[in-house]
Amino acid sequence: MPRKIHTSQPVRDAFKGVNLQAILRRLSTKLESCRSCGEPIGRNSPANLVSILNHEKRIKWPALIHPRCGDSAVYETSTAPDPNEIFFEVECALLAGKRGPVPALIIDAYGGLATTESGEVHDRLLAGFATLGFEFPDWVCHEGDGDADPVDEQNCTPGLTALLEGCEVRLLHDGRELHQLGGLRYFPRWYRATNCGALVVMIGRNLQGITFDSLEYIQQAARNKELVQAVAAVTRIPTTPADRCYCINGKARKFGSCCGSTDGPEE
């Protein structure tokens, strides 16, 4: 359930001419910290919308604060947000492919937003991925969906590659590293699906901790054009069979009898 955000008239006036509803939609579902105390704001906790104004750089941007920390108002500051500060939450999933299941990385992105002088928020991150061949999908389907539009594993996005080593993926474009995604949690079935040579990469906003079992927020992001996807040609860096497996069950299994075995466990 989205959090309730109180917006005062002075803040509404500060963002006059800006799509305030789009700002509120984004802030009502994503992970946020209080601009005043720095503590996290609960997903279902109420918050006040504030306008932060930097006169020197002539920009303003929206933020949230706890009701106990302050009112919905316009505040001045000598600092400005860093649009280059980005972090991801990643979930491994399986999509329907033309020749079998295709592994996917579903990424909830934070940061990479720029604010114009008028206060309009520009998504530099997704726009940047779009210039690299990422597309805005209209719909996303599970592997088991009967009406799913299957992914063509042999139709990879030009120049986009991925290197999978253990529980890390390096995403590259024309040999230049874009991002390194670590701490992946996957089952053996997901790892074996990388045999198809393709890896779907989806990057979106406000995915609510993702949970691919429910597509509600992913579909909402697709409808709002806040989700991009591409297909990377994936290469696996070999793992020694005697090494501990990197999957969810890796603490109890060797790679050779788990993800590295064709007849090993699915989960």
Rank of each mutant, 00 (worst) to 15 (best):
A222K: 01
R205N: 08
H173D: 06
N195E: 14
L171Q: 07
A252W: 05
V234R: 06
W190L: 04
L181C: 12
A221C: 00
E216V: 10
R192H: 03
R236K: 14
G182N: 04
T194V: 05
N224L: 10
K251M: 04
Q180Y: 03
E226K: 04
L178Q: 12
A162V: 03
T194G: 05
E216F: 08
L164E: 06
P238F: 15
I203C: 04
C196L: 09
G250Q: 08
K254N: 07
Y217W: 09
Y246G: 08
V231T: 15
F212D: 02
G183C: 07
A233E: 12
E226F: 00
A198D: 09
L207G: 06
A222S: 07
A162Y: 13
N224C: 02
C247R: 02
R170W: 02
I203Y: 02
C245D: 06
R253Q: 11
D213Y: 06
F255W: 14
L164V: 10
S214L: 09
L172F: 01
Q208M: 15
E168C: 12
C245K: 11
I237M: 02
E177K: 09
I237N: 01
A221H: 00
T240M: 11
C245G: 05
R244W: 08
S214H: 10
T239F: 04
Q208G: 15
D174F: 01
P238Q: 15
S214I: 07
E168R: 14
R192D: 04
G183M: 11
N249C: 12
R244F: 06
I248N: 05
L215R: 06
A230C: 04
R223A: 14
R223I: 02
T239H: 06
L215D: 04
C196S: 13
C247M: 03
R192N: 11
A230K: 09
L215I: 08
H179Y: 13
L171F: 07
L178S: 14
A252V: 03
L163A: 10
R192V: 09
T240E: 15
A232G: 00
Q180R: 14
F255S: 04
P188N: 07
V228N: 06
Y217K: 04
K225D: 01
S214C: 13
L164A: 10
E177W: 00
H173M: 03
L181N: 13
T211A: 10
G250I: 08
A222Y: 00
T239Y: 06
L181T: 13
Q229A: 02
R189M: 06
H173K: 08
G256I: 14
A233K: 15
H173S: 10
R205G: 07
Y246E: 00
R176F: 12
A230W: 01
V228W: 07
L178V: 12
T211S: 12
R185A: 12
R236L: 14
W190D: 07
A198G: 08
T235A: 15
G183T: 09
L227N: 00
M202P: 03
T194A: 12
G197T: 11
E216R: 12
A193N: 07
H179F: 15
A232Y: 02
Y217T: 13
L184G: 11
G209Y: 11
L178P: 01
K254F: 12
Y217D: 13
T161Q: 10
D243G: 05
L171N: 05
V231R: 13
T239Q: 09
R185I: 10
E168H: 07
A162T: 01
C167I: 04
D243R: 09
E226Q: 12
L163I: 05
A193V: 11
A232M: 00
I218V: 15
L171P: 01
V234T: 05
L227I: 01
N206Y: 02
